[in-house]
């Protein structure tokens, strides 16, 4: 007991510092992107309080940019839910290797799952061993702080600029172009992109006012058909990559 009370604060401090250090790299990306988010949100007409609220509770990077656009367009809540589900579906797989088991406190565990963004997963995937609750939480909290702080700086800049800059919202389209290019690095990813294009055109013809909602449903339907076709032909094993 005596021993523990002397050693624990030392190692805990070390663990927190290690977590903070691991957060600096992703933070360099999160902070400027947060500035862009705050700037774009205010330029689009969202109230300032919505930016930190979005970054704290709706903490999900690229989806937040999309939501600024969807909110200012008054998009229906069902489309919001479906878009959130499909855009963030990739998170389902982070549980496989994310070291959540080191966190014992239920509230901390809840937070750790909420703050399981792409960047947090990437850091733990790149450093698979040595995780403790203090290290993991200080990493996640610091990354969350970079993101929220960036948003606040963005609000400050937007408030300082008089009027609105026409064309600034191209940043959202540019973001999704780069995300798509990063997702399509191999030839195996091209069919998905072609199916998505077909789904978009179908949605445009059938429901021109619900393109994203209908497009995603049609895309998933076509992808499911592709799955069962590939399985019947026995070509799935290669695609799954396992």
């Amino acid at each position: 007991m005596n021993n523990r009370s002397w050693v624990a604060p030392q190692s805990r401090r070390h663990e927190i510092l290690t977590g903070l250090k691991l957060g600096i790299g992703p933070g360099l990306g999160l902070f400027p992107l947060g500035i862009a988010l705050g700037l774009l949100a205010l330029q689009s007409g969202l109230p300032a309080w919505a930016v930190p609220a979005l970054s704290i509770f709706g903490y999900a990077g690229s989806l937040e940019f999309l939501m600024i656009d969807m909110m200012t367009a008054g998009t229906g809540l069902l489309t919001i839910a479906v878009t959130t589900f499909f855009v963030n579906f990739r998170h389902v797989f982070y549980a496989f290797s994310f070291p959540l088991h080191v966190v014992k406190n239920p509230i901390a565990k809840f937070y750790s799952m909420h703050a399981l963004i792409d960047e947090a997963y990437a850091v733990t995937a790149a450093n698979p061993t040595g995780w403790t609750a203090a290290r993991l939480l200080s990493l996640q909290i610091s990354m969350h702080c970079y993101w929220v702080a960036g948003g606040l700086v963005g609000i400050a800049i937007a408030t300082a600029i008089p009027g609105t800059i026409a064309g600034l919202d191209f940043a959202l389209l540019a973001l999704f172009i780069t995300l798509t290019l990063d997702a399509v690095r191999t030839r195996e990813q091209l069919p998905s992109l072609l199916i998505a294009t077909a789904a978009f055109l179908a949605a445009l013809l059938i429901t021109p006012n619900q393109i994203i909602f209908a497009g995603m449903i049609i895309f998933m339907a076509l992808l499911t058909i592709r799955y069962f076709t590939a399985r019947r032909k026995g070509g799935l094993y290669d695609h799954a990559g396992n």
Partner: peptide
């Protein structure tokens, strides 16, 4: 494996 490229592409 298949979803990200398509969903992101659809949004773009």
């Amino acid at each position: 494996l298949w979803m990200p490229a398509g969903i992101l592409g659809l949004l773009a």
